[in-house]
Design a protein around this nucleic acid. Structure first.
Lengths: 119, 119
DNA sequence: TAAATATATGAACAATCATTCATATGAAGG
DNA sequence: CCTTCATATGAATGATTGTTCATATATTTA
């Protein structure tokens, strides 16, 4: 390791020390997969729009469909995904079900994304 | 508007006032599309790993492939996407090309994602 | 309890995407 | 210049995904 001489032509440009250090700081694959899944949720315009709307006001499914000018079914499917990723919560009120955001990470993540693209 | 009486059975549960207010706060479709595209980039484990590595240290393509135990071609393709979205920059040094992060939004976005999934 | 309203869900299809393989480009050294 | 090393790129393919259509579930009201 201390001896930098290359005895054969393996590892010509692989910097093992950096690679080991970096590997140490890398979270488990399972966590990274979860993280990717979370960002996939933000990677669709329809879901972003839903989140944007809920950032402003809680809303029922039918109204969401109206605002976004989309099918009730399409909205329900997307709400399902947002629900699975714990980005939205819901409560029943009579016949309707009202959705709202679960936490403040949504707004931070969207804000940072906005800052990045507006540069 | 002031008169809440429903004259026929249109608009039984559409709350027009809320819808209009929410529509006003919604960015243009073009921007939302761009935002979705940005988050799509974070929605893939390989790209997240690349960003994680570069968060720790700038690195050449071959080393990235070693660290992530992936094909050089696969890494190059993903770097291309990261480049297009201005998340990474690069400089040439002799024969190798060294990639690094462009700005600090990357770390904020990843951090917030991490915070969200670890709850 | 039957009809109406609000939402959810399953299957299917088109579109998008990540990787692989083969090959191209481009710089450096002999 | 000709070879080698480092990276980029194009086409092909298998996998994933968003929407639609049809239908199911669940709550309220007549």
């Amino acid at each position: 390791m201390a001896d930098q001489k290359k005895e054969n032509n393996d590892f010509i440009h692989v910097h093992e020390d950096v690679i080991e250090r970096v590997n140490g700081s890398m979270p488990d694959d399972e966590i990274l997969y979860e993280l990717g899944d979370l960002f996939k949720v933000f990677g669709d315009t329809t879901r972003i729009k839903i989140l944007y709307v809920l950032l402003e006001s809680e809303m029922c499914v039918y109204d969401l469909a109206q605002v976004l000018n989309m099918t009730q079914s399409a909205i329900s499917h997307q709400l399902q995904i947002l629900k699975q990723n714990k980005l939205v919560k819901f409560r029943r009120e009579g016949k309707t079900i009202i959705y709202s955001l679960t936490d403040s990470h949504v707004s931070t993540i969207i804000d940072q994304g906005m800052e990045h693209i507006s540069e």
